[in-house]
Structures are given as structure tokens and as C-alpha cells.
Amino acid sequence: MDGHGGFIWSSWGIALVVLTILIGISLKSMRSRERELARMEAEAPRRRRRRATETDTKTNTKTDTATTPETATPAGDNTGDNQ
């Protein structure tokens, strides 16, 4: 590569490393936060239970497949109520 291969490969290497770290951290924090939220909602006080029983059970079984819309929706519903 013209004797400049080192520059070319390190450019792409740095881009790869930076983006991999970013993607890794982002995914990891999303999974842990959503898992924590699902756990907390499962043991939520009764007043909340009454309304959210249906969706809560769904959330518990599906926590790991975080990309499905069902998991995030109940979380979002509650966020909307509270703010």
C-alpha cells in the first residue's frame, strides 16, 4: 500500500476500536437498565400492580429479547405517567 499501509490500517483500526467500545457500552447499559427496571416493576407496590399486571408478566418473560417493542412499551407508559 504505497508504503503508507501503516497509516491506512491504523486509521481504520482506531475507527473500529472506538466504535466497538461505543456500541458495547451502549448495548450493555441498555440491557442492564431495562433488566433492572423490569425487576423493579415486578415487585412494584400494589397500586401500580393493579394497572400493570398484564404487561408486567409479559415484560418479565421477555427481558432478554430487549429489541422487541413489547418490553419497552410498559416502561415507557409508566415514564409518561410519572413526569
Binding site: S29, M30, R33, E34, L37, A66, G76, T79, N82
Partner: peptide, 8 residues
């Protein structure tokens, strides 16, 4: 999503 879950 992570941020919204965190706030919740």
C-alpha cells in the same frame, strides 16, 4: 432507551 429506563 437506557436513559429512559434509568429515569424510570
Amino acid at each position: 432507551r437506557a436513559e429512559l429506563a434509568d429515569r424510570r
